[in-house]
């Protein structure tokens, strides 16, 4: 099966400082890939560079279009990049407040991407928005409530609904559970696992938590100091970590 995303020798530097260095991987349709590392390991830089929100210093990111043709992301115009982000991709931020429009209702937040794609039937928008609120376990009766009246966990679930409502081909997630209580985290991870399976999503998720990768990802990349130190099937990495840093990470997961 042909990959959806092909990353080759990708580096991003900030002046003299290395953000990420010489990263390569493929992402296949329907696959959820986790990038694991501690803070400062370059995983968020990698995510943002892959998602074309940061320009790479060198290397290549290619995205396969519906037509089968490949797009080199660094060569995209701002217009095409925004079109992709609007029509084919989704991005879930760590802090839901960055990804939500806080001054409009939950329903408007879910409906916005649909309207951006040209849907102009109000009743239909409401119907879909209610459906998605239900799917992310928010009472549909709260469709006209402001996101600011929601708890942190609800806001994150709302952001997930807002992102997935257009059924994107590819979703980027930056630590979507990091700012939340453990019990709330579990609920969201459970929800994500269900949605990923139902929708057959392809996704790249950044997390500092190997336990999150174990729950969601078939494959995992482990990063340290901007470089990939280990990559493979998540189970394999957990059962038989090769790199000392991965071994350290795994032992900390297993002991907790």
């Amino acid at each position: 099966m042909s990959a959806l995303l092909q990353v080759r020798g990708l580096s991003r530097h900030y002046g003299q400082r290395v953000g990420c260095e010489d990263v390569s991987f493929d992402l296949h349709p329907g696959e959820l890939l986790c990038i694991v590392g501690e803070s400062g390991s370059g995983k968020s830089t990698l995510l943002n560079t892959v998602a074309a929100q940061l320009a790479p210093s060198s290397g290549s990111v290619r995205y396969r279009q519906r037509s089968g043709g490949w797009l080199e992301l660094s060569a995209l115009s701002e217009a095409d990049r925004r079109r992709l982000a609007r029509e084919e991709w989704g991005f879930v931020t760590q802090n839901p407040r960055d990804g939500l429009r806080l001054n409009v209702s939950a329903g408007a937040n879910v409906a916005e991407r649909l309207m951006a794609l040209g849907m102009r039937n109000y009743s239909q928008l409401r119907h879909i928005a209610r459906g998605w609120l239900e799917r992310v376990e928010i009472d549909p009766a709260r469709i006209d409530d402001a996101p600011t009246s929601f708890s942190g966990g609800m806001q994150q679930r709302l952001q997930i609904a807002r992102t997935l409502v257009t059924q994107p081909r590819l979703v980027f997630m930056d630590e979507p559970t990091a700012g939340l209580d453990v019990s709330v985290q579990a609920r969201i991870l459970d929800l994500l696992r269900r949605l990923v399976n139902e929708l057959g999503l392809a996704a790249v998720m950044v997390t500092h938590d190997l336990a999150v990768a174990r729950l969601l990802a078939a494959r995992t990349i482990v990063m340290q100091g901007g470089r990939v130190v280990e990559t493979g099937l998540t189970d394999q990495i957990l059962d038989d970590p090769q790199h000392p840093y991965t071994q350290l990470l795994v032992s900390s997961v297993l002991t907790t």
Binding site: R86, R101, V104, G107, A108, A111, E112, M115, A116, L125
Partner: peptide, 9 residues
């Protein structure tokens, strides 16, 4: 899409 958000609201 943003303008329609306002009308929706």
């Amino acid at each position: 899409g943003l303008m329609h958000v306002k009308l929706y609201e």
